[in-house]
Amino acid sequence: MAKTIKVYGNMERWFHSHLVHFVAFMIISGLPVLSHSFDFIAYGVGIPVSTLMGSQDILSAGMSFLRFIHYTSAFLLTLMAIPFVLYKLTNFTTWSMWPDKWGIKATIDGTAEMWKFYMKQEHVSFGKMNIGQKFFAQGVVLCMIVIFISGYMLIFRDMFSVEVASYARGAHAISFVLLGMLLMIHIYLATHPTNKNSYKAMFKTGEMDIDFIKDHHGIYYDKLKKEGKV
């Protein structure tokens, strides 16, 4: 019997790795537009840019450069997302983010399981994703869709009325704030010591120990067993 099994495909790992880079660029370049609290980013970029370009206003030079980075990252991310989305759409119904069980009771039970695992450190049996990961994934997909659509509407804003463009700007910012909070929780839990196997699988090998799966992801193990994969 194999000691490990592939839990993240090459496409998923490739997309996730590069998504990290592009999202980081987009967050850094977008924050100064969202709030003056992040003007220091634009000033930091603006000092060398204004010196090189000979422009007078540091903040404007920085903001213009960051806007270029934001647009470029958005375009490259879109290019990168096309094969990934097409690949994922082929198995739409089997995505791990869909609930194993639906309903309020299942949600409460799933939350209680997470509480036991992260707070009481008790042994629990998850699917490939626990309920928190599923909600996170659904939230991220939703926010990304809104950000994507509203972002392109803002780039091509001349095609829309001022009011529609205004809605797009609001939606872009609100969904980014939500996404930002989700990402903070995601990064914390992904780098948490208890999740080192998942981290290693996503960023290094794509594979996870079967014993670990059996121990921590019992529902997923049973599913793999049923499919004859272990």
């Binding site: 537009v33 206003d57 404007s60 903001m63 806007r67 803002l154 804003r157 001022v162 205004s166 609001g170």
Partner: peptide
Amino acid sequence: HEPCIGCSSCVDA
């Protein structure tokens, strides 16, 4: 107009 980058934020607000 010197620092304005034409981002349209004012238009939307």
